[in-house]
Write a protein that binds this DNA or RNA. Structure first.
Length: 357
DNA sequence: CATCCGTGGTC
DNA sequence: TGACCAAGGAT
């Protein structure tokens, strides 16, 4: 078992993935990648990363950008608080650290959006410091390699795995070592159907020895996510001759915080039945939302069920105002400037291509 | 410490 | 198709 780090590093030298942020001279590029990669697949991140580096090539360009531009660049990636926190952190780095990431684990973790994992990843990859970076891949690999029976998402499992990660870190090689474990986890030590037959560490793997790879890592059960149906409306009126849609900005915190959307409301059962009159010019979508999430715009549901949305747009507007929602009439050709989640962006594109408007 | 936060892919 | 998963962090 002592020799697994060198075996892993040899494997990595031959099999590492070529990724846009690897070998990048700028620490900022690695920072961008680490934030984008939080809970997000590499294939999803790559196009966003490339575009981001053109839009915000340096920490200074990011720091002086508007929040709207930052969210626009992030649109579609999800977990939008990452973009807000990154923006805040860039401002702090520029103002308090002369535009450079601090070479210090504690200072790194003071920056919004940088936790224990990301601090370790930046410290090792950017500065070559001897720091572990325990992400989902490493948790899975180590849980198998050392046959960890404690649930990886339990306090005990977390403590144990961080300890393992630190103990096995080869001095002076943390950058390659951490990334090697990530690549191994992403290409061979897969969550399902791990490819043990081609794994360079198969001989050292305790779970493999006992044939329990499929049972590691152990995880505690999570609650299932319920499905709710929402109805969204395209409320269109002409202002100075150009068609405009009514948009609402969501509260800065919570689901899709700060993003713009079409007025919508949760509906019970079949929305076509509840909103038949309004849906003539509205679009229906099914979305997944967590239990207990309340939509502040439920009041529009009432308005929609009684009036045609186009003819009585003013009524919806006054109903929305009572909720203190930030709403705005936006020219259809300007819709793309307003950051939206995936579903509302889909609606926006459909409206723009709708010959009726 | 449990829950929340998006989206797209997989089996 | 529902459940699970993916380079976590904030609260």
């Amino acid at each position: 078992m002592r020799r697994f780090p060198s075996k892993l590093l040899n494997w990595y030298a031959e099999n590492k993935r070529t990724l846009p942020w690897r070998g990048h001279r700028s620490p900022y590029a690695v920072w961008v990648s680490e934030i984008m990669l939080q809970q997000t697949r590499v294939e999803t991140v790559i196009p966003y990363f490339k575009k981001w580096m053109k839009t915000f090539p340096t920490v200074y360009t990011l720091a002086r950008a508007s929040e709207q531009d930052v969210l626009n660049a992030w649109e579609g990636l999800g977990y939008y608080s990452r973009a807000r926190n990154f923006h805040k952190a860039a401002k702090i780095v520029v103002e308090d650290h002369e535009g450079k990431l601090p070479r210090d684990m504690t200072e790194l973790q003071k920056l919004p959006g940088i936790g224990r994992y990301t601090a370790g990843a930046l410290a090792s990859i950017v500065f070559g410091m001897d720091e572990p970076a325990l992400d989902g891949n490493l948790k899975r690999v180590y849980a198998r390699l050392f046959d960890v029976e404690a649930p990886v998402n339990s306090t005990e499992g977390e403590r144990l795995l961080w300890e393992i990660a630190r103990e096995n870190l080869p001095t002076g090689k943390a950058a390659d070592f951490n990334q090697a474990l990530m690549d191994l986890g992403a290409t061979i030590c897969l969550p399902k159907n791990p490819r043990c037959e081609v794994c360079p560490l198969a001989k050292e793997c305790k779970a493999k020895a006992r044939n329990v790879q499929g049972l590691r890592p152990v995880k505690t059960m999570k609650r299932a996510m319920p499905r709710y149906t929402y109805a969204a409306a395209a409320i269109i009126k002409r202002i100075n001759g150009s068609p405009c849609a009514l948009l609402v900005q969501r509260p800065l915190k919570g689901l899709l915080g700060g993003m713009w959307e079409f007025p919508n409301a949760r509906v019970a059962g079949d929305p076509a039945e509840a909103l038949a009159p309004a849906l003539e010019t509205a679009y229906r979508l099914t979305v997944r939302k967590k239990r207990g999430v309340q939509n502040p715009l439920a009041i529009v549901k009432h308005a929609y069920s009684h009036f045609s949305v186009v003819v009585h747009a003013f009524l919806c507007e006054s109903a929305l105002k009572k909720t203190n929602a930030a709403l705005k009439w936006i020219r259809l050709k300007d819709l793309e400037k307003y950051p939206m989640g995936k579903i509302d962006r889909t609606i926006a594109r459909r409206i723009i291509n709708d010959s009726r408007f």
